[in-house]
Design a protein around this nucleic acid. Structure first.
Lengths: 189, 189
DNA sequence: GTCTATAGATTGATAGAC
DNA sequence: GTCTATCAATCTATAGAC
């Protein structure tokens, strides 16, 4: 079926872009992963940039679903924020090997001066706004809540980058504990 | 002169790798920047990987010089650490546009599974050990000092990634103030 | 040491048969 | 919708004249 093949392409490209980077991933690699010919490819996507756009849209959808899921699991904002903080543990193996999918894609597209870069940044904004919403629910003013959201995002990016570089699990655990203590304590910025 | 041409190639590649990424930077781009022909290129470097190795060596040298310079400017370990923390302000314009040169190169080489990746990580280690040395001088045990060094490194990577994504100067300033307060205060991990 | 010319492989993308 | 065959451009890398 057409929709299935298209979905297969998007999911394969999503994973390959994460593991190898956008530019380094060739049509050949995606086609081989899906098990179709390179020619068939162009029936579904006319350019590589179209695939990237589809992959980003796919990530935005799955991220929205994930955040909704987290919100459904608990009504406690602090617990929700903790869920985010612990991604670096939950996805520890992937992060050690390939870094954060959002951070590394955004950084690559910045260097390529790629037109889809704003959409990749929108992925960050999704987390940012969701986190800010939780801090607002904890009683903080919107501006403070946003600053706290960025602080948590910066934590995740810093930890992911160093986890990828050094592969040090103890470091990740320590930083998670530290930020959870900050969350349970004064939330000083 | 030969040495000069070689140095020119390394410096041009250093900048282009930072601005455009390693893989996206072609021999043509480097040759055009230096003002030599593509053919001449291969008299100085046989492969692209050799240029990368030379660029990393160059960065290691300049980083060593910079750390020595910082150490020469003040004997106060806290002041030295503050010098590092403020890089995200000092190099603010570049970081907003291209991210951290160490973090983005390390991340790219991880995805490419490039043989020179350990040498890129060694750049991180240079900062890590230097920072740990300062925390040790402040009276902390080696293991604690190293954990603090990683914490400061994670800060710089997180701030750099988000500064690159959002271009928000206020965020950077806030995070610098916060970490300097941590440094002046209890240094809680 | 620097150049021009070119090889050889790979890339993104197209045309047309089935 | 999927395939094979192919194009044009680009890339890394080489050969050989000056």
């Amino acid at each position: 079926m057409s929709a299935t093949t298209r979905a297969q392409i998007v999911e394969a490209a999503d994973r390959l872009f994460y593991e190898q980077g956008f530019e380094h991933t060739s049509f050949t690699a995606i086609a081989e992963t899906v098990g179709i010919s390179r020619g068939n490819f162009y029936y579904h996507f006319r350019t590589k940039d179209e695939i990237l756009a589809a992959v980003i849209d796919f990530r935005i959808e799955t991220t929205r679903d994930m955040l909704r899921q987290w919100a459904a699991e608990t009504a406690d904002p602090a617990q929700r924020i903790r869920r985010f903080i612990r991604i670096v543990l939950t996805n520890g193996a992937d992060i050690r090997e390939f870094g954060c999918p959002v951070g590394t894609l955004t950084a690559e597209l910045a260097k390529l001066r790629h037109p889809s870069r704003p959409e990749a940044v929108a992925l960050f904004t999704l987390f940012r706004d969701w986190l800010a919403g939780q801090f607002t629910a904890l009683g903080h003013h919107p501006a403070t809540a946003d600053a706290m959201a960025l602080h948590v995002l910066a934590f995740s990016q810093g930890v992911a980058t160093l986890a990828n570089a050094f592969g040090d699990d103890d470091f990740v655990r320590r930083e998670v504990d530290r930020l959870e203590a900050w969350l349970a304590g004064g939330l000083t910025l």
